[in-house]
């Protein structure tokens, strides 16, 4: 059996697929994701246009068994909503064990799920895979980080939910001077501004070397809301070219960690 398994490009199993499912739902704003199994862990990436890139990252230690062949690249495109539905096939109230198999390039990803409380049932899913499109490399080693803040996720989520939905653009002002953080939205006839000093309860840490003003599509910023809802804190990093990086750790019962990450490209001044 072991010999047979090692021929597979990728196999993995975990005791409960529930947290993986909620992680996937947090980045599920596109139908397709690039599924990439690295030796260190599993990474799923979705992109919106060339402007937003979201990844879910599951370090290998979350799996009870995790095996990737070292001589091949395990990377393919997969329907992420089907994947999430399959993981949830026994309902969100049920913890079910999960096994994943991927034989070789072009073969489907196979999932086998078995609920922990009932023993006479199992589900197997074959999800077809496609050749992956290239993933944007947004990280630029040459740029420096101009600001890093750590915010409480539920409060930040509340703040984003309060922003006027009809606005297209959100302006973010970060500065070492008071008020350290300003979020400004421009509507048809109004301008609204939320100021947040670094002493605010929502701000856990604040680092900013010099003042920056950046504009983002509000719609892009809103894509992180699902991820915020399942996290406790969010790290916001802003680099000198305006690229915004948000890193979130998934709220989990055990010690192992799962992450999601969002890169958001700024709007250029016109």
């Amino acid at each position: 059996m072991d010999d047979e398994m090692s021929e597979y490009y990728f196999t993995a199993s975990m005791d409960s697929g529930k947290t993986l499912c909620s992680l996937l739902k947090a980045i599920q704003f596109q139908e397709f994701a690039v599924f990439c199994a690295l030796a260190e862990g599993l990474k799923l990436t979705v992109e919106e246009g060339k402007c937003v890139q979201a990844s879910a990252y599951v370090p290998a230690d979350n799996f009870t068994e995790y095996h990737v062949r070292s001589d091949v690249d395990v990377m393919f495109k997969i329907n992420i909503s089907v994947l999430a539905e399959c993981l949830n096939i026994f309902g969100s109230g049920e913890e079910s064990s999960l096994k994943m198999y991927y034989r070789c390039e072009g073969s489907p990803l196979i999932l086998v799920l078995q609920p922990q409380s009932v023993h006479n049932v199992m589900t197997d899913c074959e999800i077809s895979t496609q050749t992956a499109d290239s993933v944007l490399e947004l990280r630029d080693e040459d740029t420096s980080e101009v600001a890093k803040l750590v915010l409480k996720a539920p409060a930040f989520l509340g703040l984003l939910a309060d922003l006027e939905r009809s606005c297209d653009i959100m302006e973010l002002k970060l500065s070492p001077e008071h008020p350290n953080i300003s979020i400004i939205t421009y509507g048809m006839q109004d301008r609204s501004c939320i100021d947040m000093p670094k002493s605010s309860e929502m701000v856990q840490s604040f680092n900013c070397t010099h003042a920056v003003t950046l504009k983002y599509q509000l719609h892009h910023i809103r894509l992180i809301m699902k991820a915020l809802a399942v996290s406790t804190k969010v790290v916001v990093r802003c680099s000198s070219n305006g690229l915004l990086l948000l890193q979130l750790k998934l709220e989990k019962e055990d010690q192992r960690q799962m992450f999601s990450e969002f890169y958001i490209v700024p709007l250029l001044d016109d």
Partner: peptide, 8 residues
């Protein structure tokens, strides 16, 4: 894109 079977 998929084939899902639940077996009891």
């Amino acid at each position: 894109t998929s084939k899902v079977s639940t077996r009891f």
